[in-house]
């Protein structure tokens, strides 16, 4: 069965659970270790919660990635919303900065769990996070 991308609409806390479970499954399927799959699931949980808390609604797209080796060696997670946006992205990426209900570790924490992490945000337009985890050799 070929691995495809999975799209999950995020609007409630139950969707967060669905998204992180999908991420774990895909990480398992491309051969990530149990630990790496857990890191991916945890990072997804953080960015998904960010959507629920700040935008109310958005989507998460999880896809297998071929980084030029002819096989799927990474998981890419795109989290997108059309919410209020983040006025100061740099500050939002600092530990302990929180406007929501978490510990203020959500986004910076997700960045630590993944191999790559990019965030773009525009006030009044929305926020997009693109992050990847590579299968460790």
């Amino acid at each position: 069965m070929p691995l495809g991308r999975i799209r999950i609409v995020i609007s409630t806390d139950a969707d967060i659970v669905v998204a992180r479970r999908s991420g774990r499954e895909l990480a398992d399927q491309i051969g990530c270790s149990h630990t790496d799959a857990t890191l991916v699931a945890t990072a997804i949980s953080e960015v998904a919660r960010n959507i629920v808390t700040h935008a109310g609604r958005g989507e998460i797209i999880i896809s297998p990635v071929d980084e030029g080796t002819g096989e799927h060696t990474a998981v890419e997670v795109v989290a997108r919303d059309e919410g209020p946006g983040i006025p100061d992205v740099e500050r939002a990426m600092e530990d302990g900065y929180s406007t929501g209900r978490g510990l203020g570790l959500g986004l910076p924490g997700a960045r630590r769990l993944m191999d790559t992490f990019e965030i773009t945000s525009e006030v009044g337009v929305g926020t997009t996070v693109v992050m990847r985890k590579r299968r460790s050799t």
Binding site: T35, T38, G109, L113
Partner: peptide, 13 residues
């Protein structure tokens, strides 16, 4: 679980 503990400290918790 070991993996959960590992992820938690990576997260900064």
């Amino acid at each position: 679980q070991p993996e959960v503990a590992f992820a938690m400290v990576q997260l900064g918790l």
